[in-house]
Computed example of a mutant assay.
Amino acid sequence: MTWSIDQPAELPPSNNQIVPERVFYEFDGPLIFSAKSAFVDTIFFKFGENDENSLYLAAPITDMIIASMLKGDLSVRGALMSDQVWVLELASDLTVERYWTVQGEEFPGNLLPARRTGVGAITSGVPDSFDEATALFALNFQGDKFKRAGMPFGVFRTVIQNAHDAARKILIPALLAGTRSATLDFELTEPKFSSLIVALKQPILDVGRITRRLKTDVQVDVISDAISENSVHFVHDMDEIASSAIKGEITSAVAQEKFSILDQVSDIVPTDENNISELAITSNVKGSRSSVVIGEDTGEKILRARKLAMSSPVTEHGVIIQVNGKQSTFLIQSTRGKEVTCATDAGTFKALRSDGRFNLGHTIRVTGLLSLRQRRDYMLLSQMPTLG
């Protein structure tokens, strides 16, 4: 059920006038403001007009929500998200003519403020929830099937599984890529519906398991910092890719250099087939926030660019986990979460062996023709790898 102005309304007591306490935005009168209403602090948002009166959506608000809005940590849309809201018809002097008590999920989404739009000094790219504003890494999925009251189980399962796999590929350092959740996992806040918000907090590390895997003592802070850096760098790279897509098709140069990024997001970007219309990715590290929003058009371009990149040499980043001198090959654990067998000629391999950094556990950048396989991918190198 969706709220409509044609539904029966309630009449307020006489002389029920709203007196704004803080006006966030006004134009020929207050459009977004807070006030005391029936002893409850409330935020008001004008969404339409009816004859000579104005229609406002109202929701309970707290000092923390107001402070977050002014700081740019919460959008107007996010501030209005409440289980119960009110729709009020106000006269020009803000006297209540009539009102409706509405369940939050019943208010039409197209009448809400634009997503990720704030007030004050920061007006765009503002999180729509506190989870996005505070999580280490957050994915906000939008789509017609994502409703506050619920969604199809199959849709939820698919999105969550793909989000889980993508987040691990994006965040986990190459040395620990492929580890199980028992070794390295992330605490998840309660998923939010209406959109589907998947927000990850700080990592959960089993130091003993990691030590046995790496065969060396582990500093938790070093791993946590690497995960945070991966979060920031990923959003930066995705922003570059999205900017390229907005100008037209993603260039072959960008696709080949950023192939790992394209591959990591291939199952979560919006397309016309996966029930996702928009994806917002947010990273919060050491008080600094970065975000990127990917629409369906950009998502389709990402998938096309990934497919086309496969016909030319692409660049991979990872760590060396095995060396086979007889075959002139070595195995890397890619930042994409896959193992990749890298093959080269005897001369190039000999040159690599002469470099003292060509050892197990060392970072490496390789470029070549990549073949995707179920167990291990295969790359025929086209140039000398770069050791980190």
Rank of each mutant, 00 (worst) to 15 (best):
D377Q: 05
G109E: 15
F24E: 05
L262P: 00
D51L: 08
M64A: 14
R212Q: 10
S312K: 13
P191R: 14
S231N: 02
H164I: 07
D73Q: 14
G337T: 03
P270E: 10
I43V: 10
I172V: 07
T344V: 06
P385G: 07
F27Y: 12
K326C: 00
E52G: 02
S194W: 11
L90P: 02
D267C: 03
E296K: 05
S382R: 11
T211C: 01
L214M: 11
P152V: 15
E187W: 06
T341D: 05
I246K: 07
A91I: 10
Q374M: 06
K301T: 06
S277A: 13
A35I: 14
V314G: 01
N284H: 04
E316F: 05
P173A: 14
E26V: 07
I276L: 01
D345H: 09
R376I: 04
E190Q: 11
E278V: 13
D51G: 04
V220H: 01
D28L: 10
A245V: 06
R209D: 03
N53A: 13
F24I: 11
S291Q: 15
S382M: 07
P108M: 11
E249T: 00
K258V: 06
L70G: 00
P191V: 15
R373G: 04
S82V: 10
S244T: 09
T117P: 00
Q84I: 14
G299W: 11
E52H: 08
T62S: 15
V19W: 10
L136V: 06
D83I: 12
D131A: 15
K147H: 14
Q103N: 13
G295L: 13
E190F: 07
A182H: 04
K326H: 04
S354H: 13
G150Y: 06
V85C: 02
D128W: 12
F349S: 04
P108T: 15
G368N: 10
V314I: 09
V119Y: 02
V119C: 00
D217E: 14
I364S: 01
I268M: 09
L57P: 00
R304L: 13
S75H: 08
V323K: 12
Q7E: 08
D165I: 07
F107N: 09
R157W: 04
D217S: 09
E296T: 09
S290D: 08
L372M: 05
V155P: 00
A346C: 05
R376K: 05
I302M: 03
M64I: 15
T251E: 01
L139C: 06
P108W: 08
I302A: 00
S311E: 09
L112E: 01
G48Y: 05
I321N: 00
V85R: 03
V218I: 10
E229Y: 05
N284A: 12
I18C: 01
F33A: 02
N275A: 07
H164S: 09
L372G: 01
L171F: 04
I43Y: 00
I5Q: 01
A114Y: 11
L112N: 07
I250A: 00
T62P: 04
E21V: 09
N110V: 08
Y25A: 14
E273R: 12
